[in-house]
């Protein structure tokens, strides 16, 4: 899946977690802008993992702060 398609699929998965309905850009941060707490992060990561059939380990999660970084990471993890 290319970056655009991956980004679109992730955006759709973020929607139900985007409680305030803010506009999501590559720079949108999960903790700051989307106000994800640790429980939300767990549920959200599980959804992404299942949707793309990948693993995003905690070690990798630590490097991902924004939507753009997540898209890049998922593109890479899909190989």
């Amino acid at each position: 899946m290319d970056r655009a398609a991956t980004a679109e699929k992730i955006a759709a998965l973020i929607a139900p977690f985007n409680k305030k309905g803010i506009a999501v850009t590559d720079a949108t941060s999960f903790a700051g802008d989307l106000e994800f707490d640790s429980l939300t992060v767990m549920d959200f990561v599980a959804e992404i993992e299942d949707a793309f059939d990948i693993i995003i380990s905690m070690n990798q999660q630590a490097e991902i702060e924004t939507y753009g970084q997540l898209v890049d990471a998922v593109v890479k993890l899909q190989g």
């Binding site: 599980a46 993992e49 990948i54 693993i55 905690m58 070690n59």
Partner: peptide, 27 residues
């Protein structure tokens, strides 16, 4: 213990057998 080591750490939902198996399959 996980944090102190160098392994990749992959958590799954509490007591969720399917969630555990899915992650094992993807390693």
């Amino acid at each position: 213990g996980c944090k102190m080591g160098d392994a990749e750490v992959v958590p799954f939902k509490h007591n969720d057998i399917d969630a555990m198996e899915k992650r094992l399959k993807r390693i």
